[in-house]
């Protein structure tokens, strides 16, 4: 019996191959595509240390001298890359904190709704923005804030005030981006929290009611404490991605407007611009490698932390 369960390894592999060749074949397309579009670029990160020439290819190009030259240029005081790093961290942090608070609040509010019809309708409406491309979001924002005939400026001028040129004023954009981000994502994020609330054992509430708890008391002492692990885990997972900005969101909502770069230029838009406009492969891939490395470390830490709080909710 023992012998049958554990045949010699080579024999077992040969047997697997003859019996399960279809299984191996089925895995090949995904393995190849992942290799081409995920692993080959990973090897390609060496160009961050090189003077890349198309003709010489990734591996044939000469090494930088000194080898960290691209990174030195990048992190010179006052460089645009440092601005982009600061913007990425601050804007994402703001999205995480305010976005989470709003999504939890929205979930609590959805949970209070008693008419199922009404609940279903408002909840469907709240996801609607999640379904559209960031290009369209950019157009919405422009229809609202445009100088010539945006809705807000039309209201201001019909009230006799002075129009605001939103697209020339970078200081307003962190707030505008935050509100747009919440508008696009709050309905989506609230689903997870609403599910956690719905999963809370009803007997807690029954007991609380017998003790004469108010509705607010139930939320304050039952719902919120039981929701906390979910909130922490979701926040940790978001912090793992804090160095990655949503390129499409920033690129389209700001309309890639140079006036707004001081407060809206994030790592992903900076990399794109360096790549496509100035064509400096070395610098832009150095930023990219810096970003990916930070992300890897952050994801590992945040996942480790998330797993300590709730075994099942970590990514891996």
């Amino acid at each position: 019996m023992q012998k049958q369960d554990n045949p010699p390894k080579r024999h077992r592999f040969g047997q697997t191959l003859s019996q399960h060749w279809q299984m191996l074949l089925m895995a090949i397309p995904a393995i190849v595509l992942l290799f081409l579009f995920a692993y080959m670029p990973m090897f390609g990160t060496v160009i961050a240390f090189k003077r890349y020439k198309v003709k010489q290819g990734i591996f044939g190009s000469k090494w930088m001298d000194p080898i960290f030259r691209n990174f030195e240029i990048l992190f010179r005081p006052g460089s645009q890359a440092l601005v982009a790093i600061r913007n990425t961290l601050l804007l994402n942090l703001m999205f995480i904190v305010v976005g989470t608070v709003f999504a939890v609040f929205l979930a609590l509010m959805f949970n209070e709704l008693q008419r199922q019809h009404y609940k279903r309708i408002v909840q469907s409406l709240s996801f609607l923005p999640y379904f559209i491309s960031t290009v369209v979001v950019g157009i919405f924002v422009q229809a609202l804030l445009g100088y010539e005939n945006g809705t807000i400026n039309a209201l201001i001028s019909s009230a006799g005030g002075n129009k605001i040129n939103f697209y020339a004023n970078p200081n307003m954009w962190p707030t505008i981006l935050l509100m747009t981000n919440i508008w696009k994502g709050a309905g989506y994020s609230s689903v997870v929290y609403l599910a956690a609330i719905t999963g809370i054992d009803a007997t807690y509430y029954e007991a609380a009611r017998i003790d004469g708890a108010t509705r607010w008391g139930e939320i304050r002492y039952i719902t919120l404490p039981l929701l906390t692990p979910t909130v922490i885990v979701m926040t940790l997972l978001a912090i793992g991605k804090i160095m990655n900005a949503d390129f499409g969101f920033f690129y389209n909502v700001t309309g890639d407007n140079p006036n707004l770069y001081p407060t809206t230029d994030v790592l992903d838009t900076f990399i794109y611009r360096t790549l496509r406009k100035t064509g400096d492969m070395g610098i832009s891939s150095a930023v990219g490698l810096f970003q990916s490395t930070c992300s890897l470390i952050l994801v590992l830490i945040s996942n480790f932390a998330a797993r300590r709080i709730d075994e099942g909710s970590a990514l891996f």
Partner: peptide, 11 residues
């Protein structure tokens, strides 16, 4: 981990 936009583009 991702190689980033630039190596991806070159590939």
């Amino acid at each position: 981990f991702s190689g980033g936009m630039v190596p991806w583009y070159i590939v």
